[in-house]
Design a protein around this nucleic acid. Structure first.
Length: 346
DNA sequence: AAAGCGGGGTG
DNA sequence: CACCCAGCTTT
C-alpha cells in the first residue's frame, strides 16, 4: 500500500478515488449508459438543472422535466411558458429560458461533440461544457465546481484558492483514461464525504493525502467567500380575484423575468404603502380594497416584503394553477386562505 | 473583477 | 443566522 503524503503522485490519488467511486458512487438517473458516452440530452438537462442546485432537489425536477420534454425536439417545440412551468420553484429561471433557446439551435444543427461546441450554447459555461463533453463525448476536460474547489483546496491545504488555481489543479489531476468517471468521482466525494461544514474524513479515500485533514481543521478549507449584504426591498401587490383566478402580469427584466405574478409597485425608501397602492391602482384602473397582509421572501441577495392588498378591476383573470409563479407570488396568493384559517383558529 | 440571479438545506 | 449548492451572464 502506498503511503499517502501531501505530495502523493496523481496516479495514486486517481487509483484511490476511482476505486472508491466504483464502489460508492451515487446512482443517479442522468448516469445511465456507457461511461464517457452518455445520452447528451439527459446529461445536458441535468447539468443545467444542477447549477447552484443541490442534487436531492434536482432529482425531483429532473424526472418531471424529462417526462414533459423527453427529447431535444420536444423541448425545442415547447412554449417558453410550458418550460418555465416545469421549472417553477427551482429558481434562476434564466437557466430554463436559455435551455429552451439552446434546444432550438441543437434541434436544427445537432448536438455539439466537443467542449468548444457546447460552450457556444447559451447557458453553457466552462463547468457545464467540461461536464457534458467528458460525460457524453469522452473528452478529457476537468470540471471546476463547488465540490472540486473544496476537495482540491483541502487536499492541497490551500485556504484561498483562485479559480485559475482550482482549474490548474483539476487539469493536472484529471484521469485521462476515465475523464467522465473522474469528474463524477470528485463531485461525489465533495457532495457526500468532503462536505462543507462537517467532512467525514474517516470515510475518505484521500484522507491520508489531505493537507487540510493533517491540519486538524479540514472544515476551515477553503475560507468562506465574502458575499454582498442582503438588501431589504418593499413593494405593494394587488390581488384582483382569488387564489384560483387572478389578474397576473408577466414579469420582465432579470429578476424573475418571464414568470407571471401579481401586479406590483415598488415602495421607495420611507414611502407610505398607500402611495404605491395608489400608483398601481391608477395603472390598472383598479379600486383598492383592504390590506390582506404581508409576506416576506428571501432570495439570497435581497429580502422582499410584499404588502398585499385586495382590489377590484374590470380586467381578465387568469388561471393561477396554469401560470409559472415564483415562490413570492405563491405566498402572496395564499394570504386569503391563511386569513380564513386564522379566523377559525380564533 | 464584481454584481446579479432563487430557493432551500445544513450546522 | 451564516454559509453553501454539479454556475452563467452582464456590467
Amino acid at each position: 500500500m502506498t503511503p499517502f503524503t501531501p505530495a502523493t503522485p496523481p496516479a495514486d490519488l486517481r487509483r484511490a478515488l476511482l476505486a472508491w467511486f466504483d464502489a460508492r458512487g451515487r446512482d443517479l438517473p442522468w448516469r445511465r449508459g456507457p461511461e464517457g458516452a452518455r445520452d447528451p440530452y439527459r446529461v445536458w438537462v441535468a447539468e443545467i438543472l444542477l447549477q447552484q442546485t443541490q442534487v436531492v432537489r434536482g432529482l425531483h425536477y429532473y424526472d418531471r422535466f424529462l417526462a414533459a420534454f423527453p427529447d431535444v425536439h420536444a423541448l425545442a417545440a415547447a412554449s417558453e411558458d410550458a418550460v418555465l412551468k416545469a421549472w417553477e420553484g427551482c429558481g434562476y429561471y434564466a437557466r430554463a429560458r436559455n435551455l429552451r433557446r439552446a434546444a432550438q439551435h441543437v434541434a436544427a444543427e445537432g448536438f455539439p461533440s466537443t467542449y468548444d461546441g457546447w460552450l457556444a450554447l447559451p447557458g453553457v459555461g466552462p463547468y457545464t461544457a467540461a461536464a457534458i463533453s467528458s460525460l457524453a463525448c469522452g473528452e478529457a476536460r476537468a470540471v471546476n465546481d463547488g465540490n472540486v474547489r473544496r476537495v482540491l483546496a483541502r487536499v492541497h491545504g490551500e485556504e484561498r484558492p483562485t479559480e485559475a488555481w482550482v482549474q490548474a489543479r483539476a487539469d493536472a489531476l484529471l484521469d485521462p483514461a476515465r475523464p467522465g468517471a473522474w469528474n463524477e468521482a470528485v463531485m461525489d466525494l465533495g457532495a457526500t464525504v468532503c462536505t462543507p461544514r462537517s467532512p467525514h474524513c474517516a470515510e475518505c479515500p484521500l484522507a491520508a493525502a489531505c493537507a487540510a485533514r493533517a491540519s486538524g481543521h479540514p472544515e476551515t478549507y477553503p475560507a468562506p467567500k465574502v458575499r454582498p449584504a442582503v438588501q431589504d426591498v418593499h413593494a405593494v401587490a394587488l390581488l384582483i380575484g382569488d387564489e384560483e383566478r387572478a389578474v397576473l402580469e408577466r414579469r420582465s427584466g432579470s429578476l424573475l423575468g418571464g414568470l407571471m405574478g401579481l401586479p406590483t409597485e415598488p415602495l421607495a425608501a420611507g414611502e407610505a404603502a398607500a402611495d404605491a397602492l395608489a400608483r398601481v391602482c391608477a395603472r390598472l384602473g383598479a379600486r383598492p380594497g383592504p390590506l390582506l397582509g404581508q409576506v416576506t421572501h428571501t432570495m439570497t441577495h435581497r429580502r422582499v416584503t410584499l404588502h398585499v392588498y385586495a382590489a377590484d378591476a374590470d380586467a381578465p383573470r387568469q388561471s393561477v394553477a396554469q401560470a409559472a409563479l415564483s415562490r413570492l407570488d405563491v405566498k402572496a396568493l395564499a394570504l386569503p386562505a391563511a386569513r380564513r384559517g386564522s379566523l377559525f383558529a380564533g
